[in-house]
Each structure stands twice: as C-alpha cells, then as structure tokens.
Design a protein around this nucleic acid. Structure first.
Lengths: 145, 145
DNA sequence: ATAGTCAGTTGGATATTCCAACTAACTGAG
DNA sequence: CTCAGTTAGTTGGAATATCCAACTGACTAT
C-alpha cells in the first residue's frame, strides 16, 4: 500500500479483506465451500493467488486451516468469528450490487424468517431504527497522518 | 480480472468498487471532501492511480464530475444516488474494522439520533428484525460459469 | 516577477497478477 | 502393479498495475 492517509477502520479493514479476491473467497467459505479446488473454481481466482490469499486470511484470523483427513493430508478453510462477522458486509455489498450493478434479478437471493425475500438495510443496534444519512452525526473523525 | 467464477452481485459490485482505493475515495467523498488534492492527501493514494479511480467511478455512475469554478476550470467529485447507497457498505466495513482489526477505540465514531453511539447491524427491510446467519435461507444461488 | 494552488499527466522502477504446467501425496479401477 | 484421477498447492515467465517524484498548465495572490 502507499502513503498513510486517514486513520480509519475502513482502511484497516481493507488491509485485511480489501484485495481483489478476499471477499469472494469469504463468500464461498460462508456459503459452505471449504476446499481449495472448489474455492478456486467458484471464485475464478488463479491458484497461486488463491493460496496467497488463504494464507493471508488465516494469518489475519479471518479463516482457520483445519485438517479433515489424515491420508492424504487434506485441509479445509473454516471461518472464524471474525470471518462470520463479515457476512453483513457481504450482504450489504450484494444488495448494492443487485440494485446498481447487476442487470435483471439478483443471481443469488435469500428469504428471511419473516417470509419476505431478504433486502437488508442498516439499523442502529441500540434502537433498531434504520440508519439514514441524516440520522447520524460525526462524533469524532480520524486524523490524517 | 481472471476467470469467470460464480454469477454474483458481490463480484459485480467488486468490479466497480473493489479496487484498492475506490472505497477510500468513496469514504472521503461521502465525508464531504470533493477535491482531487484533498482526496489524494486523505486516502494516501498516489495521484495517477487516484485519477484513474475517479475516472472509473465516474464511468460506473458512482460519482459525477462537476465544475464548481470557471477560471481556472475546477471540478469536484459528487456522489450519485448509487454512490450514496454505498454508505451502508462503508459503515458495515467500519464496524467490522473497529471490532476485529483496529486496536483501541475506533478512530471515527458516529452518534445515532436515538442518542447512542452508532453500532450498525443488518436488519430485514421488511420486518425490521436483525438479520442473523440462521434467520435467512438461500432461495437461489448464482451458478458458476 | 515570483510563489503558490489545483488537477492532473508522464516516465521509470517495483510489485502483483495471470496462466499453464508441474510436483507431491495419495485413492480406486483393472 | 500400473494407470488415470483427485486434491492442494508451487513454479516460471510474461503481462499488468502500482508507486513515486517530477513535470505541465492554468490560473491567483503578493
């Protein structure tokens, strides 16, 4: 990465999962695909880059690498709590992609327990009211280093 | 980008805003910084890459480039509706970064109208209940090309 | 004149990515 | 035992992208 920029958890988050393939890897892992070849196929990442990304995601504590077979030694990639906590980011991204990028209906769709097709929105965890641009105000802004 | 992979709005979204600097540029623009030099300083992106990213974001309809001065001709970058709709993605990412990456308290913090410090969570836009991993089920899954 | 601001562009070194082919360790069929 | 297939990577080399400092061009302010 280049120069410093603003002190910011968005930048910090992107240092972990902001590389081209990381979020697609996470998507597959959270969908239940945990093996190298399947993740490679389903993301479209080349195998060397995928190996590097998986290593980085394990190093950063987003995934763990666990043996599921002794002979031959085989490992699968399992999301940690931090990894599972990225689901909202992926769903928010999917919702945005569905609305503003993908032509036609979304290729992947979910149903919520309430029976409606899922269209997630951001809410305040305290009062459970939707978060809109004019319902929040800045308390503190990270400084530019 | 490489091979095809799964048909997916996450991948489509990342094709638009998945490059290293795009989301940081969006962050600055949504915070109200709209001029080239300020965005460069506050993100830390090098100027050539920033110019390329801004062009791409304008091409993809996330920003518009608008003249705010005739002499000398000066332009500012203003978010479109699609750009403003990325705020939830950035807030979700910030929340995750605060929790799992940044050491200590988050460098940037918001207060919600309800008076509490903002900790956004994802909710169903229909029933306004929080979305958890086990409160949703797959309706349709994008196919791998 | 001279310095400073703003929004980029250019050139060259460096770093990353892509891709196909290869290794390594096995399994299961004949 | 031999041969094809599966799984999880690694390797080498070409193609791309990024970083950085310096430069341009159009102006303003002193």
């Amino acid at each position: 990465m280049a120069g410093a920029g603003r002190e910011c958890s968005i930048a910090n988050a992107l240092a972990v999962i902001g590389e081209r393939w990381s979020l697609l890897v996470l998507r597959e892992v959270l969908l239940g695909e945990r093996r190298f070849d399947q993740i490679a196929r389903n993301t479209g990442a080349s195998r060397d880059i995928l190996a590097a990304r998986l290593r980085a995601l394990v190093d950063h504590g987003v995934l763990t690498r666990e043996q599921y077979e002794q002979r031959p030694p085989r490992h699968e990639y399992v999301p940690t709590e931090a990894g599972r906590a990225l689901a909202p980011v992926l769903l928010a991204l999917m919702e945005w992609g569905d609305r503003y990028v993908t032509e036609g209906p979304g290729p992947t769709r979910w149903v919520h327990d309430c029976g409606a097709e899922l269209h997630p929105e951001l809410a305040c965890a305290h009062c459970h009211t939707p978060v809109t641009a004019d319902s929040i105000r800045l308390l503190r802004l990270g400084t530019v280093r």
